[in-house]
Design a binder for these strands. Structure first.
Lengths: 185, 185, 185, 185
DNA sequence: AATGAATGAGTCTTCATTCAT
DNA sequence: TATGAATGAAGACTCATTCAT
C-alpha cells in the first residue's frame, strides 16, 4: 500500500531527525499528507511503526550480508566489504543505529526477544568461523567477541567527533581490527 | 548542600533504571524524600540535573584517568588499567554510557558543545602519543581513531548479549585491540 | 433485505454483550461479514439501529401479549402467563431491558416520545381493568401503578444476585404480587 | 479537602444529568472552576470519581437505614419509613439509581465484587427476618426475594411515566406490597 | 448496492513547571 | 528554604461517518 509506505518513510525520517519520543503521530501524518487518524489504519501504535521501520532496514542489510557470504571472497575481504558497505549506508542515515539501540534498550525492559539481531549475527559468525577454519583468523578469541567488536567499529565511527571523513575513519579502524585478528606469521 | 546531592543521586539512579524520558521530577523527589517543588530550588530543569549528574560521573572517571597517566606504567598497561577499571565501574551502572549517548544526541540538536568529552579524551591522547613515541604503538593510525576504537570496546561489551562474563568479554577485546595496535616485531 | 436483518441482529447481540457505547459500527459489520460503509446504506446512525432492534423486540413481545389477551384465561392467569413467558425470553437475553432503559434515558434527553411503550402498556391495562371489573383485583390502586409494579418484577429479578434460579425467583415475586393484588374474601 | 469535594459533587451532578460516558473530565473541572489536570491530583480516573460518588451516597443511605433499624418501630413501619424516605431523597436525584445500575453492570464485566450492596441488604434482611419471627410477615417467601421486590418498588417508581406524583405512586406500591407480604388473619 | 480507506473532532491522561504559603 | 496543589499544553489513540470507486 502506498499510504503505509509513505507513513513508515516519513516516520523513520522524523525519528532519525528528532528522536522517537520527540516525534508525534500528528507530525508524521502531517508530513505524509494524511489525516492523523489514518495512521491507525496501518499501525497499532507509534512504537509499532518504529518496529516496522527497523525491521525493514534490518532486512535490507541482512539481504546484502547474505549475498556477501555466498561470494567467493576471502573472510577478511568479506568483513571489509560488509563493514564498508554498511558504513556507506549508515553514513546516509547515521542515526539509524542509535535509534535501533534506543529501541532495543526500551524493548529490553518489556520483551525478551530482539527479533532480528540473532539471524544477522549468525551470518557474521559463519564468516568468522570460516576464517578461523582456514587458519587466517586467530582462534584464541571467542567468535561472539569478535563479532561484537566488529560491529562496534561502525558504532564508534558513527559517534565520532573527529574531523576525519567517515569512511576514512572506518577504514582505519577496520585495518587495526584485522591486524589484531590476523594470525601471526 | 545535602539536598542537592540527594536529588542528583536519586535522579541518576532513576535515569539509569527507567530512562530519562520515563522518569518524572515528582518521582525523583519522592525517592529523595523531598517536596516536588524543592527540585527547582536546586536545578533549573529536568535536563539540568541530567547534565549535572553526567558531569559528576565524568569528573570521577577523569580524576582516575589522570592518576593512571601520572603513574610509571607502560602505555599499554595504562590503557589496560583504564579500560578494566572503567569497565568495572560501568559494570555496576552499565546504562550510564547509553544515557550519556542519549544526552549527547539530544544536546547536539540544541547546543554545540559537549562539555566534558574533550578533556577526557586529551588524557587518553597523551597516553597513546606516549606509546607511539616509545615505539610500542603503531604510528600509521591516527591517535583519535585509536581512542575512539578504545572507547568503543566498553560500549560494545556493555551491549553484549553473550553469556561470557562482562570482564572476561572486555579483557578479550582489549587483548585483540592491543594485538592490532602493537608494532610488529 | 437480508443484509439489514443481519446487521440488526449482530448489532443487538453486541449491544447486549458489550453495551451500546462499547460496541463500534466496524465491529458490528465485521460480525455481519459486511464492509463498514455498508452500515450506512441501511441505517442512519448507530443509534438508529438500536432504535430499530428494540422496536423489533417490542413487537415480538406485544404480539405475544395480544394473543394472551384474546385467550379465555382468567386475568391473574393472564398476568402469570405473560410474566413467566416474558421472563423465559428475558432470561435468554437478560440485558435487553437494561439496554432498553439505557436507551430510554438517552432518548428522554432528546426526544419526548417513547415510541413503543404506550401500546404495550395499554394491553396490560386492559387485562388489569378486566380483573378489576370482574371483582378479582382490588380497585383501590391505580391501574398504572399496578402495571409498573408488575413490570418491575422482571427487572428486579434480572438484576438479582441471589442463588435462586431465575424462574423460581420470578414465580415467588409473582405470587407475592398477586397476593397483594387479590381482593380479600 | 475542598477541591476534592467540589470535584466529586460537580462530577456526580453531571453524571446524573448527562450520563457517565457523555460527561468529560474537562467539563467536570470547568464546572468546579479548576484546571483540567487538577482532577488527577485527586482521582485516578474518571471511573474512580464515579466509584467515589456512589460510595458516598451509599454511605448516607446506609447510615439512615441503620438508624431506622435501631428504632422501636414495627417491621412493616420500618420498611415504610425506609422506602418513603429513600424515595424522598431519590426524588431529588432520581437518576442516581440508574447511574448505580449502569455502573454495576459495567463493573460486573470487570470485577466481581459490588462493594456496598451486601452490607446494605443485610440490614434490610434483618428487618424482614424480624417481621417473620414476629409472625407479621409471611414465611413462605425467601427473604432475599422480598428484599429484591422491595427495592424494585423505588426503581419502578423512578422510571414511571404516569402523571401520579412520585410519592403517591410510591405509597400505593408500598401498600400493595405490604398487603401481599402480610400474613392472612 | 458494497466497500473500506480516509478523516478529524473529541477524550483521557501525563507532567514539567509555577507560586502562594 | 520547603512545599505540594494547581495548571494547561501536549500527545496517543478512538471511532462515527463520509465518499470515491
Amino acid at each position: 500500500m502506498q499510504a503505509k509506505k509513505s507513513i513508515s518513510e516519513n516516520a523513520l525520517r522524523l525519528f532519525l531527525t528528532k528522536g522517537f519520543m520527540d516525534t508525534t503521530v500528528a507530525e508524521i501524518m502531517e508530513e505524509a499528507d494524511l489525516g492523523t487518524g489514518t495512521f491507525y489504519n496501518y499501525y497499532d501504535s507509534k512504537e509499532d511503526v518504529l518496529k516496522y521501520c527497523l525491521g525493514e532496514k534490518i532486512n535490507e542489510v541482512r539481504h546484502f550480508v547474505e549475498e556477501i557470504q555466498k561470494s567467493p571472497l576471502e573472510p577478511s575481504q568479506k568483513l571489509s566489504e560488509i563493514l564498508l558497505t554498511a558504513g556507506k549506508n549508515f553514513e546516509e542515515n547515521s542515526q539509524l543505529i542509535n535509534l535501533f539501540m534506543q529501541f532495543r534498550r526500551q524493548a529490553s525492559r518489556t520483551q525478551r526477544e530482539s527479533p532480528h539481531g540473532p539471524v544477522f549475527k549468525e551470518i557474521l559468525a559463519d564468516i568468522v568461523c570460516e576464517g578461523q577454519e582456514k587458519g587466517v583468523f586467530r582462534k584464541d578469541i571467542a567468535v561472539g567477541i569478535i563479532i561484537e567488536m566488529f560491529m562496534g567499529l561502525i558504532q564508534s565511527t558513527m559517534n565520532s567527533n573527529l574531523d576525519i571523513p567517515f569512511m576514512d575513519n572506518l577504514k582505519q579502524k577496520l585495518y587495526l581490527f584485522l591486524e589484531g585478528l590476523g594470525v601471526e606469521q
